[in-house]
Amino acid sequence: MWKWLHPYAKPERAYQLCSTLQPYFFWPAVLCILVGSVWGLAFAPQDYQQGDSFRIIYIHVPSAILSMSTYVAMAVAALVGIVWQWRTAFMAMIAMAPVGAVVTFIALFTGAAWGKPMWGTWWVWDARLTSELILLFLYLGVMSLYGAFEDKQQAGKAAGVMALVGVVNVPIIHYSVEWWNTLHQGATISKFDKPSIAPEMLWPLLIALLGFALFIAAVTVMRMKNEIIRREYHRPWVKEMVQSAKETNHAV
């Protein structure tokens, strides 16, 4: 059943796949983020309580949700790498970590900039904020652990174990607003019943969410390509690929 997947374990095929996917992720991402931001900033109605400060939601919520999703995706890649010994799975894992860290940073920063006018403080050590900060440290930890090993297969295993252990933090972040009494408000759209947000406000948010997801995918395939080249440096196919890329560049 999963046979079709196997060729992509080969770095060469994985590289080709990444190259094919890259523009389909990148340009729609730019478009969606642009549309979502402009719609959210200029056309969505004001919040009756928070005025125009609520417009930060259009980057805060997508980045916060996807910081967790990206972590789960990274942990799945780590699990595949550890269980089936796929080198490419570790490459995918380490390609996702930096963009995950950036998205987590965005969630924290926009949260602080939203918290200051609404709560009167940039930061509180409450459950939601602290667990999200730990998520950032987990991303950075995976990256630095991977960087610390000379042998990249060993590095993948070590960083992969760390990524897997860190998964425990994801449900803590998600349920922190229910488990603890915090300053952070509860879930707005990721509820099973009707979302507690007006549709004119929800649409730009969903578009921005899609844009952020595509952006993360785009950066992941870009960095995955880099990691493949780094690891397959001396293989003939890399040299041939560089050679042919050069020729097409000269032709243009």
């Binding site: 900033l41 005025g51 125009d52 930060i56 960095r223």
Partner: peptide
Amino acid sequence: MGGYAFYVWASFGVTFLAMGLIVLNS
């Protein structure tokens, strides 16, 4: 931005800057 200019524009500015930087780096 209804008096929240600094917070809103700082958020969007830093977000796009961070996204731009990681793409550029890659």
